[in-house]
Every structure is written in C-alpha cells, then in structure tokens.
Write a protein that binds this DNA or RNA. Structure first.
Lengths: 333, 333
DNA sequence: CTGAAAGCGCTAACAA
DNA sequence: TTGTTAGCGCTTTCAG
C-alpha cells in the first residue's frame, strides 16, 4: 500500500486531522506544525489519494469534454481554452470522443456509465431535440454548438446564421451576383441548416434569386469539396462568381478543383470558408473565412458548468451565442 | 446521496455481495437472481460510484496522455488511436497538456500531484536525460518521441534519422545536388538533431558537401519557414535546388515564400516536409512528406503501459522505433 | 450460489 | 489549534 495520511501523521507526531489541514491549505495550523508535516510528507513521498478524496467529498474534480472527433480543428481550438479555464476553476478535464455516435452522446446525457465526472461539456452532433428529456436530472451539463435540446439545457452557440449572412453581404458588396452554397444537405446538422438560413436571408436581402442548382450537397471534407466542384464543372453548367463553402475544408477542396481547371480565384470566382483554420492564412490564395470566437465559447461553457456543479444559481442567461469576425483575404477580393 | 449498492440489494431482496457480482459480471449468480438485480438497478437508476471502486481496487482505471500542445497535428493523430487502444484494454484516458513546460513534465515523471492515474504516456519535449532519475519508482510510464532518459524507461520512437536519410536519397535520386535543411537549430530537440543526423548521413552517402549556409535555423512554424526563405532570397544568396523542411508547417511557410518570389516548385526547387499532415495532399503543389506510422506508435505505447500496470513482465523490448513511409508528391518530382 | 463484515484513504463534525 | 472518529460506496475474504 502507498503512504497514507496516517503514516504522515505518525511521522510528524500529529493527528490526521492536522495533516489534512495542511494538505488542503486550511487555516489554523501553527507554522511550526505545518513545517513538520510538510517535512514528513516529503520524506515519506506522500501523495494524496484522489479516489479516497472523491469518495469522501462526493466530487471527483473531473469534468468531461465530449467531442465528436479529435481531428476536427474546432476540437483542437476549443480543447485548449476549455482545459485552461477549467483548471482555473479547480477542475480537471477528461476528454471523450463520440465519433458522432448517438448512443455515446446519449450515454453522456444520461450521466455516463459511472460517476466519474462532476459534469460535462458536450458538442453533440447526433442528438435529436426530444433526447433532451432523457437527460439525467442533476447531472451538470452544457451543450456547445447548435444542438438545442428540449428541456432547459445550458447552451453556447456559434453564430452560424449571422455569420453566413455577413458572408453573403460581403460577397454582394464586392459585386458578386451568382453565389454558390457548398456543403448544404448531407451533413444535415443544425449547423448546416443555420448556415443555409443565413445564406438565404442574405440573398433575399440583396434581392438575388435562390438558385437550387447553386446549392450543392457535400460532406464537409476536402475530398468532397473538390469532387463537388469538379462535377459541377464537368457537367458544363456555368460557374458561379462566388462560392461560400460551409467550412474551410470544403473550401480548400473546391480551391484545388478550380485550380486544376484553370479557374482563377478570386478573379473569376470568389471563395469564402467557415472556421478560419490556420491554413486559411497560408493557402494560395489565402482564404477569406469566418472566425468564431472560440475562446469565448470555451470560457462561457466552463463558467456555466462550474456554476451548475457548485450549485450556484447565477442569473446568467442559459443560451449564449458568441461573437465572430469575417477575415477577408485574397480569395474574395 | 446517490443510489448505492445497498439500495439495490434491498430492493432486489439480495445482499450487496450479489449486486456486486452482477455489476462486475461475475459467475455464480442464478439467472433469475441476476434478472431481479438488473431490474432493481434499472428502476432505481443505479450508477456505480467510480471513486469507491477505485479506492477499493487501488486502481482508477485512468491513464494520462501527456502532450505538449493540443493543436499539434501529431497530438491530434496520436490521441485518437491511443484512446481507442486504451479503451480496448479497459482504461480511460485523461489528456494533459504541458505546453512543453519542464516543471509540468517533471511532475508527470514523478507520478503527478495526486494518484489520479494508473500510469502515463508522455511526449516529453523539455526533459533532460538526467531527469530520468527523478522518476517515481513504480509509476508506470511510457515515453513517446525522441526523448531518451536515463534509467530503463519504456519508449516508442519516431524514425527520425532513417526517414531523413530516405528523404535525402529520394532528392538525390531525382538529380538534386544542393540540398537545404530547414528547421535546424533553435528547436534544439532530440527530434531535430536526429533529423539533422539523417540529413548529414545522406549527404555523406551521396558524396555531397555539407554546406553550413544551407542549414537554416527556424522554429517549426509556418511563419518562420516563410521568413527564413524570404531572408535567404533577399540576401541574394543562390537558392538550393531542394529544401528538406523538418516539418510540414515549415514547408508550407517556405512554399508561400517561394511562390511570392516567383520560384517554381518543383521545377527550380524541390520541397519535402515531415509529418504528412492532411494538408500536404491538398496544397499547391501537393507536398512530398514523411509519414510516420502513428497508429503503430499509439498501439505500442498503450500495450507497454498496460503491461506495466497489470504488472506482467513481458519479454517485450523496451525501446521501439516505428515504421514510416515517404509520400512522394508533386513538390519533389 | 449468497450473506456478513472488514476496511481502502480521506474529510469534517464534534470535542477538547 | 488539534485530536477522535464516523462514514463515503465498493470489493472481497470468510462463512455458510
């Protein structure tokens, strides 16, 4: 067995109570006593036992960050800030990947297989609104992204509609008239439909027609972006003068296809993406893209979760949409 | 308080022992009894308490994956497989970020602040060989990457030297003679020096001189890659006919600088990176790059750690170097 | 096959 | 300011 508090107490000639006080930085320990205890800890190589503490406090100090995919850039950019914020509030973060599997997402909603985490922040992709009712009562939970579930679940959203509208306005302001929307359809998420909505609103606002032939279905990957544009060109249909890709991957795929067919970007076709991945600044041409304030998302989500965990009511609004910036670069000028 | 085994036992009219047997899928429970217990669990919404179990078993079921940075692609590509492999062996993964901070890395080496994890897989960047002696004895640990520490610490390595040698051979075989090495220096890691070594070995093998002026220092980022090439061009020094960038980011930065100065890749300068990030297949031109077998790394690391945790001796070699492939693409043909 | 009961290491109420 | 002590919920030894 490992060294326990009792061993330390004995070595330091005090009671476990005092050792506990020292370990937890409580007041009311005489400096001299504290020193002796610290010394004994050092000497014996004492390390507190997380399990025992959790059991006693009925809190593990762990929160879950549940994401669909490790490789998605949104994950990479969100995880850092989430971990940082969480640590600042005294939590550690257990990262869990669902692969967008509905069963796994439901699992989280219902509080997990075992009581390992004090709460969860989840980017759910496969849940349905009515799943909200299956939430385990009392398990602190914050949703990120667009998934709004039934029941009053805390939620931090990306400004999909607003940002898409801003993209259309930008393109129209530079004289583009035949806008293609790339990525509509198969993905089928809330996210996609909100971006579609902003796109349509933008067209309406500019008095432009919504041309079905220019709303192209595609999974959100480079390969599919490339393929979609390739097929469009091969079919002989006229090109749009601007493409709004629902994410940057699609945009890069499209860019590759355009280049292979000798289409000039932005002279003949303007191109805009969504997410503002690092690569956007370095591609040829550099890519105009929507940059959501992910740091703010992380901060809000953690703060909301923390309040639920410590049971503070907080007058905070349970639904927040963060800010965004449209980074205009070479591909749309 | 949450529902405990006692509650379930009472509801099912059995003893806690039996409930435990059911929960842990032990034998010797009559089907009828099992059914009753399962029913009671369902009805009461029983969820096992991880803390109590850990305390009793003196194992948390958690292993730590310790990485320098969330956004590094190597992390993204390693984390998925590690989590998968770990779950297959019954562990869950707690991800920890060190920001390459030596203190934090040492912390891990010494077993962590509290006994939260049963062991750790670490990509250490800032540790020094002699730090190996500070390892907490008995804490299962596997290192990933190049950092070899003193003491007999299990270790899975990337084939830096071998792969760099292969890159040089490839470039030489396509007629290149003045090779630049980009990324040498500041990064200062084992990784960098092994890649340098392979580069030099390759030159020697081909009977080419090692030209100091063509070994350019740069942090491993796009920005620095771009800047380094820019400065080289501005200085009026003659260009090399091939550039081997120590990672893909550097290569993309270099590519951008070359393009801005009208240098044709690969006609005038061939370009090769290291890591084979997804982007390499989609850049213009697509990038030749070294692709280490990260899945294998993950699998080996988890297997090694698992054996340490369960205390199986295993005849396994404690130092493994995984395989790699050189993906030859447009940038070097 | 099932029951009773002893702790795992820690926190915190209560006492001194 | 410090000591004593009762559990937190679970696994597991020992008995039936």
């Amino acid at each position: 067995m490992a060294v326990s508090m009792h061993d330390v107490a004995r070595a330091a000639g005090v009671s476990v109570r005092t050792v506990s006080n020292v370990v937890n930085n409580f007041a009311y320990v005489r400096p001299e006593t504290r020193r002796r205890v610290l010394e004994a800890m050092e000497e014996l190589g004492y390390v507190p036992n997380a399990a025992a503490r959790s059991l006693r406090r009925s809190r593990t100090g762990l929160i879950a960050l549940v994401v669909p995919d490790f490789r998605a850039r949104i994950f990479a950019d969100l995880a850092g800030p989430v971990v940082r914020e969480a640590e600042a509030l005294g939590h550690r973060v257990l990262i869990e990947v669902t692969d967008s599997d509905r069963e796994r997402e439901l699992q989280v909603l219902m509080g997990g297989r075992n009581q390992l985490t004090d709460g969860a922040i989840m980017m759910a992709l496969s849940l349905r609104p009515e799943d909200g009712r299956r939430r385990r009562p009392g398990y602190p939970l914050v949703l990120m992204g667009d998934h709004v579930l039934e029941g009053d679940i805390h939620h931090v959203a990306i400004p999909n509609r607003e940002a898409s509208l801003a993209v259309v306005r930008h393109l129209v302001s530079t004289g583009r008239r035949r806008l293609m929307l790339l990525g509509h359809g198969p993905h089928g998420s809330e996210t996609a439909s909100m971006r579609l909505r902003g796109f349509l609103d933008g067209l309406a606002e500019a008095g432009l027609p919504a041309d079905e032939a220019l709303m192209v279905a595609a999974d959100w990957s480079r390969a599919r972006g490339r393929q979609a544009i390739e097929e469009h060109i091969d079919s002989g249909r006229p090109l749009p003068d601007a493409i709004f890709a629902m994410n940057d991957s699609l945009a890069f795929g499209a860019l590759r296809a355009l280049r292979e067919h000798g289409v000039l970007v932005p002279q003949e076709v303007a191109l805009v993406g969504f997410d503002d991945v690092e690569e956007a600044r370095y591609s040829t041409p550099s890519l105009t893209s929507v940059s959501p304030d992910l740091e703010a998302m992380a901060a809000h989500a953690v703060a909301m979760l923390h309040e639920q965990i410590i049971g503070k009511p907080s007058g905070r609004e349970p639904h927040i949409t963060v800010d965004f910036h449209l980074r205009v670069r070479e591909s749309s000028q």
